[in-house]
Amino acid sequence: MGKSDIHKKIFAVLAFSSLVFLIGITIVLFKEGLPIFRIVKPLNFLFGKYWYPTYDPPDFGILPLILGSLWVTAGALLVCVPLGIGSALYLNELAGPKQRAFLKPAIEILASIPSIVFGFFGMVVVAPFLQKLLNIPVGLTAFTGSLILGVMATPTVCSIAEDALSFVPKSFREASFAVGANRWQTLVKVTLPAAGSGISTAVILGMSRAVGETMTVLMVCGGAAVIPKSFFEPVRPMTATIAAEMGEAVTGSPHFQALFAIGMILFLVTLVFNIAAEIISRRFRLKLGLGR
């Protein structure tokens, strides 16, 4: 009795490690990041238009960075949502068993291609190509970043969306066929809505991944910390700013604190996304009677 209790206690303590790390991350970000607000007012930090952290006196306005993240994320969604969900529908409805057995794992495997490789590919192949094609001064722009990021998130969105589609009970579709609907109508009017919240989970997680993605945007977005006027200008998303500047920021300096504060905002944004995804996916499971 007593002995098995000891094991249980050890496991219980270790099981809370995820929670401890999550709290640890929160504490670290707040502790290192909040002091910046002694120098800049929170609103000026969030909506300040100039990011010149190394000037004297420095400017810590992260609006350009936030907008950079927003543009690139929105652009990436425009790419990965149609591609990811379209591919998922194809896998679910059109692909034969043999094709499916090959494509489904292949897409999962492609989802593991590291972001640095995408970034590199964007830099050496896509950016020069787009620069020539569109006749723009630089190839490293918000547009290029969105495109690469979108393609990168596509396999993830596709895998999760396909899982959601395959969870839809066969009986739903059979009922639709029975009243004379064709396959496309059944797919769009029955299967897709039934998997709807599962698919929104896929989109939210894809979005969360796009917002938090670092190396790709660092390499292909051009890195200009100014408010972008069009899609074809360089931008500097929040993650890229942290990655590019942390190396030269002096520990404890306002610049260092500002970078942690950016990390804090990123963390909070993705936290909201993840909680939203969690709530939606729980509702999805309840709706289909899958329990838990």
Partner: peptide
């Protein structure tokens, strides 16, 4: 879901 760069900060 925490962005990888935030793990870096941590």
């Amino acid at each position: 879901g925490v962005p990888s760069v935030v793990f870096g900060l941590f």
